[in-house]
C-alpha cells in the first residue's frame, strides 16, 4: 500500500533531523569543555545527510518512486583546531598555562538548531496531513 510510504519518508526525515538536533545539543553542551591537551579536546560533530534511492529492479514498480527517504550516512568530527586560551589559574592548564576549548561556533550551532527544529516540524506536518488523508480514505463510503 503506497500511502503508508509517506509515513516512512516523513519518519526518516524526523529521525535525521533529531540526530542533527542531538549533535547540536552535544556541541552546545560541550562548547566550554576545556582540556589541558589540544589533542583530547572535544571535537564538534555534524551529521551528513544522504538521500536514499529506492532500488529500481528490472521492471520495478510502476508506482515506485525513485526516491524513498533520507538517512544519516555518518557523523563527522570537525577537524577545526581547538582554540588555546591563556588561563594559568585553571587546574586543567598545561605547563605553559594554556587550556584548549573546542572549536564550537555557538551562533552557528544555534542557527543549526533552529533550522533542524523547523525541518522536524515540517516532517511532523507531513505526517499529520498524511494521516488525516489516510483516515479519510478509510472512511470512504461510510457516508
Amino acid at each position: 500500500m503506497s500511502s503508508f510510504k509517506a509515513f516512512d519518508i516523513a519518519g526518516s526525515g524526523m529521525s535525521a533531523q533529531s540526530v542533527r538536533l542531538n549533535t547540536t545539543a552535544s556541541n552546545l553542551a560541550n562548547a566550554e569543555s576545556v582540556s589541558g591537551d589540544a589533542a583530547s579536546v572535544y571535537k564538534p560533530r555534524h551529521p551528513i545527510f544522504e538521500a536514499v534511492r529506492a532500488q529500481l529492479a528490472a521492471g520495478a514498480a510502476r508506482d515506485g518512486n525513485a526516491n524513498a527517504a533520507v538517512r544519516v550516512s555518518g557523523i563527522y568530527e570537525s577537524p577545526a583546531p581547538a582554540t588555546a586560551r591563556y588561563e594559568p589559574g585553571n587546574p586543567l592548564a598545561d605547563p605553559n598555562g594554556y587550556v584548549y576549548a573546542p572549536a564550537v561556533n555557538v551562533v552557528e550551532e544555534m542557527v543549526n538548531m533552529i533550522s533542524a527544529s523547523r525541518s522536524y516540524q515540517n516532517n511532523v506536518e507531513v505526517m499529520n496531513t498524511s494521516k488525516e488523508l489516510l483516515m479519510a480514505t478509510l472512511r470512504l463510503g461510510q457516508g
Binding site: A6, A16, E50, N122
Partner: peptide
C-alpha cells in the same frame, strides 16, 4: 492513486530539505 504518489514525492522533498546535492522532484 496519483495524488497519493504525489504526496509521497513531496514528503520526500521535505524530508530531504537539508540533504546536500538533493534535487527536488
Amino acid at each position: 492513486d496519483v495524488r497519493a504518489r504525489r504526496t509521497e514525492l513531496i514528503a520526500n522533498n521535505l524530508a530531504n530539505a537539508d540533504t546536500p546535492g538533493f534535487k527536488a522532484r
